[in-house]
Amino acid sequence: MGITWQDRISNVEVLRRAGMPAMEAMITRSQLRWTGHVIRMSEERLPRDLLYSELREGSRPRGRPRLRYKDTLKRRLGLAGISHQQLETLAIDRAGWRAVVRKSAEAVHREWEHREDKRASRRHAATATKQAS
């Protein structure tokens, strides 16, 4: 691509030039794919057991708790428009789940592009205001 550090090009622009989706979209896709795989596992498998488990005792430290896998999964499911009740029924159908994962990743990518466009327009307006002064 011929881009160097001295060009001072943002990561967003590098991803656009490479034709790659946003990192958040790639992470969403991977996380949802793996979750579907775990849900389809038999109930005695350890990964499935860990996905549905809760701690019986203990406390978490003060302040904002560190994000767990479940926390990020809930956020990604919310962005995809999937409720917790629908999760298992959707994941059992492999072809259907694959389509859900693809649509979710595309939705995250579109949201990311929208945020970047808004950020670019704010930057443009700020530079226009500075030049007018």
Rank of each mutant, 00 (worst) to 15 (best):
M41C: 02
Y69R: 11
G2D: 04
S53H: 14
A95N: 11
D7T: 11
H37L: 00
E44M: 00
S10W: 07
M41S: 05
W34N: 00
L67N: 09
R17K: 15
K74N: 05
D117K: 15
T127C: 04
L79W: 14
A95W: 13
I39W: 13
R45I: 06
Y69G: 00
T129D: 05
L67K: 15
R66Q: 09
R60K: 15
S53F: 10
A126C: 01
A22Q: 02
A80M: 07
H37V: 01
D93W: 14
V108E: 00
T127D: 03
E54H: 14
R123I: 09
I92M: 09
H84P: 00
R40I: 05
A132Q: 11
R122K: 15
K70Y: 08
W34H: 03
E13M: 10
L15Q: 02
T127M: 07
R16F: 12
Q85S: 12
S30I: 03
L79E: 01
G96A: 01
M41T: 08
H114E: 03
I82M: 03
S30P: 00
R60E: 09
S10N: 03
L90N: 08
Y69I: 04
T129N: 11
T89I: 10
P47L: 00
V38Y: 09
H114M: 05
W112K: 10
A95L: 07
R56V: 11
K70D: 00
D117F: 12
A107S: 10
A91K: 10
K70P: 01
A80Y: 10
T35P: 04
R122F: 12
R119P: 02
S133I: 11
W34D: 00
G78Q: 13
T89W: 15
A105T: 12
L67S: 14
R56N: 07
A105S: 10
M23A: 11
L50S: 07
H37A: 01
R66D: 04
L77Q: 02
R45S: 08
S121H: 15
R56H: 12
L77G: 03
Q85G: 03
R75F: 13
R29H: 07
A105H: 14
R62K: 13
G81W: 08
R110P: 13
A99T: 12
K103R: 15
E106R: 14
R62C: 01
V38K: 05
G63A: 02
R66E: 04
R45H: 11
M1R: 14
I9W: 06
P21C: 01
H109S: 06
P61T: 11
T4A: 05
P21K: 06
H124V: 03
R98F: 08
E116N: 11
R56A: 05
L67F: 12
S10C: 00
Q85C: 02
D117I: 11
L51Q: 07
N11P: 11
E111W: 13
T129H: 13
K103C: 09
A18D: 05
E57R: 14
L87C: 06
S42L: 03
R102S: 15
S83G: 07
V12W: 14
R122A: 01
M23E: 06
A125L: 10
R40L: 03
